[in-house]
């Protein structure tokens, strides 16, 4: 085990930063699911009508406008809000066990 060679078994505590990382990965999954539903719902919900019934917004067919144009803008806005208010800044390398003199040559402690 490369990660915990400095510890004895039983004292293992997961890095507290991982809790934040796990939450943010779940946010990523949730965003993708929401994005898919929005994209699919408008595209095939509105787009399955016969073309004569389409209305046009800014010249584009309505299903496309909502699914792809609004969908894209909406996702961008959500990503902006989430990065601003939800995601947390954590130090990436302040590892309590890290050897400050480590160089790439001794890369992983595996060998």
């Amino acid at each position: 085990m490369p990660a915990n060679k400095h510890e004895s078994p039983g004292t293992y505590k997961p890095d507290p930063r991982f809790k934040i990382a796990h939450k943010e990965a779940l946010i990523g999954v949730a965003l993708a699911i929401f994005n898919f539903i929005w994209w699919y719902g408008f595209a095939y919900g509105l787009g399955s009508r016969p073309p004569e019934e389409y209305t046009y917004i800014l010249g584009l067919p309505d299903w496309f406008f909502y699914s792809c144009v609004v969908g894209f803008i909406l996702m961008s806005v959500i990503v902006i809000i989430i990065t601003k208010y939800v995601l947390k800044e954590v130090p990436l390398d302040a590892d309590p066990y890290a050897d400050p003199n480590a160089t790439t040559k001794e890369e992983s402690p595996l060998k």
């Binding site: 990660a3 890095d15 943010e24 946010i27 990523g28 990436l92």
Partner: peptide, 17 residues
């Protein structure tokens, strides 16, 4: 978001290039 901070943290920890 998926690889996220955990990948970056572990990458540094393992000194992965």
């Amino acid at each position: 978001l998926i690889l996220g901070k955990k990948f970056a943290i572990l990458g540094r920890k393992y000194n992965a290039v």
